[in-house]
Computed example of a mutant assay.
Amino acid sequence: MNTSIVIALPKIEDAKKIRTVLNRYGFTVAAVCNSGANALASISELDGGVLLCGYHLQDMYYRDLLDYMPDYFEMLLMASRGVISEAPTSILCVGMPLKVGDLVNTVSMMLSQIERRWKKDKKKPKQRSWKEQNYISNAKMLLMERNHLSEDDAYRYIQKCSMDSGTNMVETAQMVLMLLYDSV
């Protein structure tokens, strides 16, 4: 997945200046806009990333935008110290007037965290549906009944056959069920 940066500020000229700064430091900005609706539209077309936004856009405040933002995007609020002190702790903030080093380091850190989270989520085994789990359970039961295996041994047998044949466990369980039912 590609991480992207979207900038939403009330003055489009300011957003373009920040895009130029980020481009200079090697970041690619996917969209620049001055309204929350445009920011959300841009975000919906992207895999994930960071939304840099101001306190108040043309059509909504940052808190409204946060409510509508998908989980795969993080917000970086650029605002005055007073606004930052009232911001929720879930939002990272950069104080105005903006320091280029702070902005670049914060965006870099946020993009790295998002990448790490994606890699971690990718490593998690996906949950099997009820139907898929049922195939495996039925195949285990049949192996336990017919071959007098324990539940652990039946599971390991399906797992080993799955690895040996290069198919996933659900397909292997379906093959075991077909083979054992055909032999009846």
Results as ranks from 00 to 15, higher is better:
residue 20 T to N: 13
residue 147 N to T: 05
residue 71 D to L: 07
residue 102 D to Q: 13
residue 135 Y to K: 12
residue 31 A to S: 15
residue 66 L to V: 09
residue 19 R to P: 03
residue 128 R to H: 09
residue 119 K to W: 05
residue 155 Y to H: 15
residue 2 N to T: 08
residue 145 E to F: 04
residue 112 S to Y: 13
residue 18 I to R: 10
residue 90 S to F: 06
residue 117 R to N: 08
residue 59 D to L: 04
residue 146 R to A: 02
residue 156 R to C: 07
residue 5 I to A: 00
residue 52 L to H: 07
residue 119 K to F: 09
residue 66 L to S: 12
residue 149 L to T: 00
residue 104 V to S: 12
residue 150 S to T: 15
residue 51 L to K: 03
residue 16 K to A: 10
residue 82 G to C: 07
residue 167 T to K: 15
residue 127 Q to H: 08
residue 183 S to R: 15
residue 59 D to E: 06
residue 173 A to Y: 02
residue 72 Y to R: 14
residue 31 A to V: 00
residue 41 A to D: 11
residue 182 D to E: 14
residue 46 L to G: 00
residue 101 G to S: 11
residue 83 V to P: 02
residue 47 D to F: 07
residue 28 T to R: 10
residue 128 R to D: 03
residue 18 I to Y: 11
residue 65 L to A: 01
residue 14 D to I: 04
residue 154 A to K: 05
residue 153 D to G: 04
residue 131 K to N: 07
residue 49 G to K: 02
residue 63 R to Y: 03
residue 86 E to C: 08
residue 157 Y to I: 04
residue 41 A to N: 08
residue 75 M to Q: 15
residue 26 G to S: 01
residue 164 D to Y: 06
residue 3 T to W: 04
residue 58 Q to A: 06
residue 46 L to P: 03
residue 168 N to L: 08
residue 117 R to S: 11
residue 112 S to D: 15
residue 89 T to N: 14
residue 43 I to W: 03
residue 68 Y to D: 12
residue 90 S to N: 15
residue 177 L to T: 07
residue 6 V to T: 06
residue 139 A to C: 06
residue 30 A to W: 06
residue 67 D to P: 03
residue 60 M to L: 09
residue 90 S to T: 15
residue 36 G to A: 13
residue 170 V to H: 07
residue 136 I to Y: 02
residue 29 V to W: 07
residue 51 L to P: 05
residue 76 L to I: 05
residue 14 D to Y: 03
residue 92 L to T: 14
residue 150 S to I: 08
residue 164 D to A: 13
residue 136 I to S: 01
residue 79 A to S: 14
residue 119 K to C: 05
residue 81 R to W: 02
residue 96 M to P: 03
residue 158 I to C: 04
residue 88 P to I: 04
residue 145 E to T: 12
residue 89 T to V: 11
residue 110 M to I: 11
residue 67 D to M: 14
residue 118 W to P: 00
residue 139 A to D: 03
residue 22 L to R: 04
residue 35 S to V: 00
residue 114 I to N: 12
residue 147 N to M: 13
residue 160 K to A: 14
residue 11 K to W: 06
residue 91 I to H: 04
residue 100 V to K: 11
residue 153 D to P: 02
residue 11 K to I: 09
residue 14 D to N: 14
residue 73 F to Q: 02
residue 122 K to W: 04
residue 177 L to I: 13
residue 143 L to I: 07
residue 22 L to N: 06
residue 115 E to G: 03
residue 47 D to W: 05
residue 17 K to H: 11
residue 24 R to G: 05
residue 30 A to L: 08
residue 81 R to E: 15
residue 61 Y to C: 03
residue 128 R to N: 04
residue 19 R to A: 12
residue 147 N to I: 05
residue 175 M to G: 01
residue 54 G to L: 03
residue 63 R to K: 10
residue 136 I to L: 09
residue 163 M to L: 15
residue 145 E to L: 09
residue 31 A to W: 01
